[in-house]
Design a protein around this nucleic acid. Structure first.
Length: 293
DNA sequence: AATGAGGCCTGGTTGC
DNA sequence: TGCAACCAGGCCTCAT
């Protein structure tokens, strides 16, 4: 559920609350939450102590805190929220959350940063910053992730070309984070609906104009969602203060099976897709005659 | 090489 | 009523 808009809401919250603060102590309550830190939980905690947060950045659905050099060189705490990860800014006296995985305390004795994650698909890890192909520096595991549509250097035509080079269905291509990042199941369905395209359309038969249309729609819908504070279906996605977003009220098709298409009134359909679901309007988004399987 | 399927997780919901 | 099956789904690993 946390896709680009939700992660950006969290990034902004962290920029407001942890930037320029110095970490004193880190405790890992569940080792799975730091499994991508190969040196282990103790190493993770030890390396963070004494470091100062100098930046809060994001690419696609990845989020990271830049750390000052210290004795380790400049690197970053990388966070992925997975399905149910939350970054909460919490006063020390607040009771621990049921699924609290990592707690970060700061030298100023101000609010803690807590990583809470029911399903533990997400996690934290520490990585060196490496030069990125298109300029700038990124945490190592993010190097293969494409720029997202809110990146000032995002190249729409290059992304369209990337999609059209794939030999798959359009929705699969939209979800491929190495082509364009930040789009998940919700915003893929909403972008396809806005551009009146079916997700099973083979990418080799997508025109450049259609490619630009669907990516522009994705950019627009994610921008709308960001302004609404993100999409929350339940308490699993919240901002750093624990508040939900309200873009779920504006979804045209995602999760809206049998409800009327906001454009033409035809009941929204649900179709199986990669062991999950896709939502679309049967009239606005006719299934292609030769769909990609 | 590129594509696609399977596995990882937990809690809420559905169905028998 | 109680329990099992199912569902949510991003991303990594592995097979083809």
């Amino acid at each position: 559920m946390p896709e680009l808009p939700e992660v950006e809401v969290v990034r902004r919250g962290l920029a407001d609350h942890v930037l320029d603060r110095t970490i004193t102590e880190v405790s890992v309550a569940h080792p799975r939450a730091v499994r991508r830190h190969v040196a282990g939980a103790a190493d993770f905690a030890a390396r963070l102590a004494g470091r100062t947060v100098t930046g809060v950045r994001r690419r696609g659905k990845y989020l990271w805190l830049d750390l000052d050099g210290g004795s380790e060189g400049e690197d970053a705490v990388l966070a992925h929220l997975g399905m149910s990860g939350q970054m909460l800014v919490a006063d020390a006296g607040r009771p621990d959350e049921t699924h609290l995985r990592v707690r970060i305390r700061f030298a100023d004795d101000g609010p803690q940063l807590r990583f809470v994650d029911q399903r533990t698909f997400g996690g934290l890890s520490l990585h060196p910053l490496v030069p990125a192909a298109g300029g700038g520096v990124l945490p190592e595991p993010v190097a293969h992730i494409a720029r997202d549509p809110m990146d000032p250097a995002f190249d729409l035509d290059a992304a369209v070309a990337g999609i059209r080079r794939r030999r798959t269905g359009l929705k699969r291509a939209l979800l491929d984070q190495t082509v364009v990042s930040g789009i998940g199941n919700i915003y893929a369905d909403e972008a396809l609906w806005r551009s009146r395209l079916h997700g099973a359309r083979p990418t080799e038969r997508l025109t450049r104009a259609q490619g630009r249309a669907v990516l522009t729609a994705a950019t627009d819908v994610m921008g709308d969602a960001l302004r609404a504070g993100g999409t929350s279906f339940d308490a699993l996605y919240v901002n750093v203060n624990g508040a939900s977003g309200y873009f779920d009220r504006s979804l045209a098709v995602y999760g809206q099976v049998d409800r009327p298409c906001p454009r033409c009134g035809t009941p929204v359909r649900r179709e199986p897709f990669m062991n999950r679901s896709s939502y679309s309007c049967p009239r606005c988004q006719p299934r292609p005659r030769t769909p990609h399987p």
